[in-house]
């Protein structure tokens, strides 16, 4: 006989938060990571060791809106919903289109991708270069934390047991006019787990670089980003000199430390990560694309 499981599905976020405050629960948004994580062998249902809380239906977690220059994305917005939404920046849509296939995109959520904290989470490189912040809510109120502080390692996040990620905030994204690229390298064009992910962000004033940000996925336990290396480019003009490009690529060469696994090799991942960076830095023109 199947064992009994406890599952909650409240109408309101408040009730959900107070239950989370009482009991250590497994949060399920789309469930596309949770169900895989706890799956059993054939013929046996998944074994989730904690009571389950469903949050995917909570309207408080599904809103997408602009406030000042910032974009707020409800954590439980599904990929399919985001693809339909005109507020979502083009590069993020491009990244979403590379995720899984339509069925999973109908279930999977942006909040789930962040909280799952996989090195191969496909929205993460972009969220890092957007300087995304997370709005967490609990019975005690709200707090806001930078994504790079929130994600601490493979499937390790800085979330208290009673907290929910309510919104993902992309600061200033609505006005900045930066050039942003996203590239995913997978073994095939759908339903592939990234071998390398890359996001590049550049903002110019005329030909002068005001801001530059880079993030690499699937080449370490979390996204690789270095504010120090990025700062070295501020004030430089484009097209960048070969020596400047070589310096940035060389600096990342030192901190990107991928592994061999069943999907690819360390040397491949590193070479490709640096190729994509070099290519991005070598562009002669950068157009605003968000």
């Amino acid at each position: 006989m199947a064992e009994k499981i406890t599952a909650y599905r409240f109408d309101q976020l408040d009730q959900t938060l107070s239950q989370l405050n009482k009991e250590n629960c497994a949060i399920i948004a789309g469930g596309t990571d949770v169900m895989v994580m706890y799956k059993s062998r054939r013929g046996v249902p998944p074994k989730i060791p904690k009571p389950i809380v469903f949050i995917d239906h909570l309207s408080e977690l599904k809103r997408v809106y602009q406030k000042h220059k910032d974009l707020y994305i409800g954590a439980c917005s599904t990929y399919s919903e985001l693809l339909e939404n005109p507020l979502i920046p083009g590069p993020l849509k491009k990244a979403i289109k590379t995720i899984a296939a339509p069925a999973i995109r109908n279930r999977g959520t942006l909040g789930g991708n962040v909280c799952n904290a996989s090195p191969a989470g496909d929205t993460l490189p972009l969220l890092y270069v957007y300087n995304a912040k997370l709005l967490l809510r609990s019975v005690n109120g709200e707090r806001i934390v930078a994504i790079s502080d929130f994600i601490q390692g493979v499937r390790r996040i800085q979330r208290e047991r009673n907290e929910i990620v309510a919104e993902i905030i992309l600061p200033s994204v609505m006005e900045e006019g930066a050039h942003v690229v996203f590239e995913k390298v997978g073994n095939r064009n759908a339903d592939a787990i990234a071998k390398v992910g890359f996001a590049g962000y550049i903002r110019l004033n005329g030909a002068v670089i005001e801001d530059a940000r880079f993030a690499f996925g699937a080449v370490g336990p979390t996204m690789v980003r270095s504010v120090d290396i990025e700062k070295g480019l501020f004030g430089k003009t484009i097209p960048l000199a070969d020596t400047d490009i070589a310096q940035v690529v060389g600096a990342f060469d030192k901190i990107i430390k991928p592994i061999d696994d069943q999907r690819s090799t360390a040397i491949y991942r590193k070479t490709v990560a640096l190729n994509l960076l070099r290519y991005f830095l070598s562009m002669n023109q950068y157009q605003h694309n968000q």
Binding site: A101, R188, N189, A190, D191, A192, I193, Q262
Partner: peptide
């Protein structure tokens, strides 16, 4: 691939047969 007698790719996505997008 096989590593010390063990097949490394245990899922369809790791093995990567083509999809309709390929």
């Amino acid at each position: 691939t096989s590593k010390e007698g063990k097949i490394q790719q245990k899922s369809i996505s790791d093995y990567g047969p083509p999809t309709s997008l390929d």
